[in-house]
Amino acid sequence: VTLFVALYDYEARTEDDLSFHKGEKFQILNSSEGDWWEARSLTTGETGYIPSNYVAPV
């Protein structure tokens, strides 16, 4: 499993987005949709879409 870490804070803009804080780690569930990836936060357990340019591989 490839994990990603948040480089910046992000505040959700829609109900499908996932808010997160810098340093939070994610498991990517689906990265085939372009710039927005479906991810699960390893901190909160919540699932939603995150901007791929806000995260980097651990």
Rank of each mutant, 00 (worst) to 15 (best):
V1N: 15
V1A: 13
V1D: 15
V1G: 15
V1W: 11
V1T: 14
V1M: 13
V1C: 14
T2W: 11
T2K: 11
T2E: 13
T2D: 13
T2L: 14
T2Q: 13
T2A: 11
T2Y: 10
L3A: 07
L3G: 04
L3H: 11
L3W: 10
L3S: 06
L3F: 11
L3N: 06
F4S: 04
F4R: 03
F4Q: 04
F4W: 14
F4L: 06
F4N: 02
V5Q: 08
V5S: 04
V5W: 06
V5N: 03
V5P: 00
V5E: 11
A6F: 01
A6S: 05
A6P: 00
A6I: 01
A6K: 00
L7P: 01
L7R: 03
L7C: 08
L7H: 03
L7E: 04
L7D: 02
L7M: 09
L7G: 02
Y8K: 08
Y8A: 10
Y8H: 09
Y8F: 11
Y8Q: 09
Y8T: 06
Y8E: 08
Y8I: 07
D9M: 04
D9K: 04
D9G: 05
D9T: 06
D9V: 02
D9A: 06
D9P: 07
D9L: 02
Y10N: 03
Y10L: 03
Y10E: 01
Y10G: 02
Y10F: 10
Y10H: 06
E11G: 05
E11F: 09
E11L: 11
A12E: 03
A12D: 02
A12M: 04
A12H: 06
A12Q: 06
A12P: 05
R13P: 08
R13D: 09
R13Q: 15
R13C: 13
R13M: 14
R13L: 12
T14M: 10
T14W: 15
T14D: 12
T14Y: 15
T14Q: 10
T14F: 15
T14A: 13
E15H: 11
E15C: 12
E15D: 13
E15P: 14
E15Q: 12
E15V: 12
E15M: 12
E15G: 14
D16L: 14
D16S: 15
D16N: 15
D16W: 15
D16A: 14
D16C: 15
D16G: 15
D17F: 15
D17H: 15
D17P: 02
L18T: 02
L18W: 04
L18Y: 05
L18I: 11
L18C: 02
L18F: 08
L18E: 00
S19K: 04
S19G: 07
S19W: 03
S19P: 05
S19D: 05
S19H: 07
F20L: 05
F20P: 00
F20V: 04
F20A: 02
F20D: 00
F20W: 01
H21S: 13
H21D: 06
H21V: 15
H21A: 10
K22P: 04
K22L: 06
K22H: 06
K22R: 11
K22M: 08
K22D: 02
K22C: 08
K22T: 08
G23H: 05
G23K: 02
G23L: 03
G23M: 03
G23W: 05
E24L: 01
E24D: 15
E24R: 01
E24G: 02
E24Y: 04
E24V: 04
E24T: 08
K25A: 07
K25G: 05
K25H: 13
K25N: 07
K25E: 09
K25M: 15
K25D: 02
F26D: 00
F26G: 00
F26I: 05
F26C: 01
Q27T: 10
Q27W: 14
Q27S: 08
Q27A: 10
I28C: 04
I28D: 00
I28M: 04
I28Y: 03
I28T: 02
L29V: 08
L29R: 05
L29E: 05
L29D: 05
L29C: 07
L29S: 05
L29T: 07
L29Y: 06
N30G: 09
N30V: 08
N30R: 08
N30I: 06
N30L: 06
N30F: 07
N30Y: 07
N30K: 08
S31A: 15
S31R: 12
S31H: 11
S31G: 10
S31W: 13
S31L: 10
S31C: 13
S32G: 10
S32K: 10
S32D: 11
S32A: 12
S32N: 11
E33V: 11
E33M: 14
E33Q: 14
E33L: 14
E33K: 14
G34D: 13
G34E: 14
G34L: 12
G34F: 11
G34I: 13
G34S: 14
G34R: 12
G34M: 13
G34Y: 10
G34Q: 14
G34T: 14
D35S: 10
D35N: 10
D35M: 12
D35G: 13
D35A: 11
D35K: 10
D35R: 08
W36I: 08
W36K: 12
W36G: 03
W36D: 03
W36V: 07
W36H: 08
W36Q: 07
W37G: 01
W37Y: 08
W37L: 08
E38C: 15
E38L: 15
E38R: 10
E38Q: 13
E38S: 09
A39I: 03
A39C: 06
A39W: 01
A39K: 00
A39Q: 00
R40I: 14
R40Y: 11
R40C: 07
R40M: 12
R40Q: 10
R40D: 01
S41H: 07
S41T: 04
S41M: 06
S41E: 02
S41N: 11
S41W: 01
S41Y: 02
L42V: 09
L42C: 12
L42F: 06
L42A: 05
L42Y: 06
L42T: 07
T43C: 12
T43L: 13
T43P: 03
T43N: 10
T43F: 10
T44H: 04
T44C: 04
T44Q: 03
T44A: 02
T44V: 02
T44L: 02
T44Y: 03
T44G: 03
T44D: 03
T44P: 01
T44I: 01
G45T: 03
G45V: 02
G45W: 07
G45I: 02
G45S: 06
G45R: 04
G45C: 10
G45E: 05
G45M: 08
E46G: 09
E46T: 08
E46N: 13
E46H: 13
E46W: 08
E46D: 10
E46R: 15
E46A: 13
E46S: 10
T47K: 12
T47E: 09
T47D: 04
T47P: 02
T47R: 09
T47C: 08
T47Q: 11
T47V: 14
G48H: 02
G48C: 01
G48Q: 01
G48R: 02
G48V: 02
G48A: 03
G48I: 02
Y49C: 09
Y49D: 03
Y49E: 03
I50G: 00
I50D: 01
I50Y: 00
I50W: 00
P51M: 07
P51Q: 06
P51E: 02
P51C: 07
P51I: 03
P51Y: 07
P51V: 02
P51A: 04
S52H: 08
S52K: 14
S52M: 09
S52I: 07
N53P: 05
N53K: 12
N53I: 09
N53A: 14
N53T: 11
N53Y: 10
Y54W: 07
Y54D: 02
Y54C: 07
Y54N: 03
Y54E: 01
V55L: 12
V55M: 09
V55T: 04
V55N: 00
V55D: 00
A56W: 09
A56S: 10
A56N: 06
P57M: 09
P57C: 07
P57D: 05
P57W: 05
P57Y: 06
P57T: 06
P57G: 05
P57Q: 09
V58C: 10
V58N: 05
V58M: 12
V58E: 10
V58H: 08
V58Y: 12
